[in-house]
Design a protein around this nucleic acid. Sequence first.
DNA 1: AGCTTAAAGCTAATACGAATAGCTAACCGG
DNA 2: CCGGTTAGCTATTCGTATTAGCTTTAAGCT
Lengths: 195, 195
Amino acid sequence: MPRAGLAPAAVVAAGAALADEVGFTNVSMGLVAERVGVRTPSLYKHVDSLDALRRGIAIQAKRELGDALARATVGLSGPDAVRAFADAHRRWVLDHPGRYAATIRAPEADDEEDRRAGDDVLRILLDVLAGFGPPGAGTIDAARALRSALHGFASLESAGGFGLPRDVDRSYRFLVDTLITGLRPDRPTGAGGAG
Amino acid sequence: MPRAGLAPAAVVAAGAALADEVGFTNVSMGLVAERVGVRTPSLYKHVDSLDALRRGIAIQAKRELGDALARATVGLSGPDAVRAFADAHRRWVLDHPGRYAATIRAPEADDEEDRRAGDDVLRILLDVLAGFGPPGAGTIDAARALRSALHGFASLESAGGFGLPRDVDRSYRFLVDTLITGLRPDRPTGAGGAG
DNA sequence: AGCTTAAAGCTAATACGAATAGCTAACCGG
DNA sequence: CCGGTTAGCTATTCGTATTAGCTTTAAGCT
C-alpha cells in the first residue's frame, strides 16, 4: 500500500471543504477519511480526535475569514470601509457556510491559538472602526455592535431564518446603513454616566 | 414496576431543562431518560427520535421566548418598547442558554408548527416596530436588522465570544441605542433607488 | 547498498449512543 | 373480574469514535 502522503493540515483542509458541503456538524472521521483516501483509524495519526479536527477547521476558517476581510478593506476608511467589511463578511459566509459555522464555536478558555485566530479577525474590525464611531474605549462597543449585527444576520440567513418574501440583499444594506448612521461619533454614547 | 405517568410534553420539558444545564447539543436520550426516571428505550413511546425531541424543545422554547417578549413589551411603544424588547431578549437568553440554542435551529421547510412558533415571535417584533422605524415594507428590514443584532449579540455573549475586558451590559446598551438612533423614520432608507 | 527506526497505514476490537423488537405488566372501560 | 391498549422493560442491532497492535513504507546513517 503506497502512502497517501498525508499531513495534519491536509486532513484539516479536507474537513473544512467537507464542512461546506455537508454542514459543519455532519463532518465525521469516516467522511474525512474517505475524502483523503485512507481508512478511518489512520486519521488518528494526524489529528487527536474529532474534537481536535473541529478545532483545526475552526482555526483555519477564522484565518481565511480574516484574510478575506483584510483584503476587502485595505486602503479604505470611514463608512466605505465599514460597508466593504460588511459586504465581504456576508459574501464569505454565503460562500463558506460550513467554515462559518466552525468559526462560531467558542474556543476553550485556555486555548491560546484558537483565541488568537479570533482576536486577529476582531483586530481588523477595530482598525476599520478607528477614526469612525465613538472614540477611545467606545470603539469596543462599536466593534461589538457591528460584529453582533453581521454575525446575527449571517447566521440567520445561512440558517434559512428569513422566511418573508422580502429581498435579503436590501435588508442587509438597510442593516449596514442603519449601523453606520447610528455609529456616527457626533451622537451621545448611550451608556450614560456610570463607570 | 409502577408507571412513571409520562407524556410527550413532560419528556420535552425535561429535555428543555436539561438543555439549559448541559447545552442543547449535549442533550441525549440517555440523559433525558435518567431525568424523567425511565430507561432509554421507553422514551420512544413518547417521542419518535432524538431529532423529534430537539424539534419539540425548539418549539417549546420559541413559545416561552415569545411569551417573555410579549409580557415585557405590553403597553409600550416607540423606543421604550424596543428597549424593553431588547432587554427581555437578552435576559431570557442568559437565563436559558440551552433553550436559546434550540431556537436557532431552522425548521424543516415543510414543518408548519415549527415555522409558526418562530413567526409568532417575529410578529411581536413587528408590532413593537409598528409606528417606529421606516413605514410600510421597510418594517421588515427594520425587524431583520433588530433581530439580527440581538441574535448576534446573544449568541456571541452566550458563546463567551466577548474576550475583551469591557463591560458587556454597556456594550449592549450601546448596540440598542445605536439601532434606535439609526432606525428613526426621518432618515433615508439606505436601499437606494433600484427597486 | 544495507541496516535501523519513526511513523503512516492497516485490520480487529472496544465503547457508547441511537434506535428497534418483542415481552410483561399496569391501567381503563365494560 | 376480563380484555385490550400501552408504558415500560430487557435484549439486540447498528453506526461512529476511538484504541490496540501489527505491517510496511520511507528516510537517514554507515
